[in-house]
Design a binder for these strands. Structure first.
Lengths: 198, 198
DNA sequence: ACCTGAACACCGTTCAAGT
DNA sequence: ACCTGAACACCGTTCAAGT
């Protein structure tokens, strides 16, 4: 006997399970139904289509992202913390990165609001807030894409700069790359505010 | 009579045509063969599989990216120019953005080399060059993803920061967003080098 | 050398039906 | 209310064959 009625929580959980153990694209309507012991059409009772399913999963992941408290420090530290939290979720569920970021822009206003308020406090004008947020968002979009891609396997053709530098790769961790990136981004934003003030 | 033998140039051209007029995912082996008036299997004579086809398209697009001449100015101006050129190609062929960037890392060393040499000249140490390049690359990856996505359609729920700021959107162009992003990134990198020197 | 045809294992999705 | 089964129009790809 196949367990009783499905709940949204069970569906999301199963979806995350599939995404985690297999590759991203392994999540299909049919595959998910199989995972839950139903016929290939069972999901369509709970969810309108595949994009709605992904929305469901993304909403769950978004809820886990903590928003730094104003008491936590100056605007740039809080921005950095928020970016780190989002990145954390992207790394935990790399499969839904795209939908997660899309949803952040459209349906879920919580994080977008938090980010923009931090930027306003930082001293950006209204239009600059939009562009600054877009810059951060774009970077995060890139992160989720880059996250689980293989390292640039050195062809080791002697003589070129790449070949020489690539030998340094083993001493750098994913964390190093992330921190360099966020620090650079935040430093760039800080500099823009400073220049605007003068 | 279906034209004589196909050439790689014709295939790439047809692929770009399909990508341009339809959505990204419209490019399929079968669709491309149809476009060229052959049977669904014809492409497999010229190309090992779909990823090889995309490689072909990406290689063509990569060749069009110009590398700024050392005489063109200081390192940061040249980095900015190179990023602009890459972004240009991403916007021209949004469909192959992912493969294009992947190829830049793996098979095609030309642009990677140029970028890293610019960063070396800028005064970055070996490891910092790698991380700085990764930051730029990540940003570009995000760009290609964000490029043709719809604007954050305002739900217009009164009271929140987002709703207020979104009204400013119409006065900003895609170019504004791009320039803000690159400038921020380059400013951040400049600041890191400066700090390293002191 | 340059393909074509049939077939397999996958998709998302619609539509009608079953308990 | 909670599904199931069959069917349609798509995929990428293998394998054997046709000219």
């Amino acid at each position: 006997m196949p367990a009783p009625n499905l709940t949204e929580a069970e569906i999301v959980e199963a979806a995350l399970r599939v995404i985690k153990q297999d590759v991203v694209d392994a999540l299909s309507m049919r595959r998910l139904s199989r995972e839950l012991g139903r016929s290939q059409m069972a999901m369509y009772y709970y969810v309108a289509d595949k994009s709605a399913l992904l929305d469901l999963v993304a909403a769950a992941a978004l809820g886990d992202i903590a928003i730094p408290d104003p008491a936590d420090g100056p605007w740039d530290a809080r921005l950095r913390a928020l970016i780190t939290n989002i990145d954390e979720q992207l790394r935990t569920h790399p499969g839904v990165g795209e939908v997660l970021l899309d949803r952040m822009l459209s349906t879920d206003r919580r994080i977008l609001n938090a980010a923009m308020e931090i930027l306003l406090e930082g001293g950006f004008g209204d239009e600059d807030v939009l562009m600054a947020y877009a810059t951060v968002h774009t970077y995060l979009f890139g992160r989720y894409r880059v996250i689980s891609s293989p390292p640039p396997h050195g062809d080791d053709r002697a003589g070129d700069t790449v070949a020489r530098l690539v030998t340094r790769l083993p001493s750098l961790s994913g964390r190093d790359f992330f921190e360099f990136g966020v620090d650079t981004l935040v430093a760039g934003l800080r500099e823009r505010v400073a220049r605007r003030r003068s």
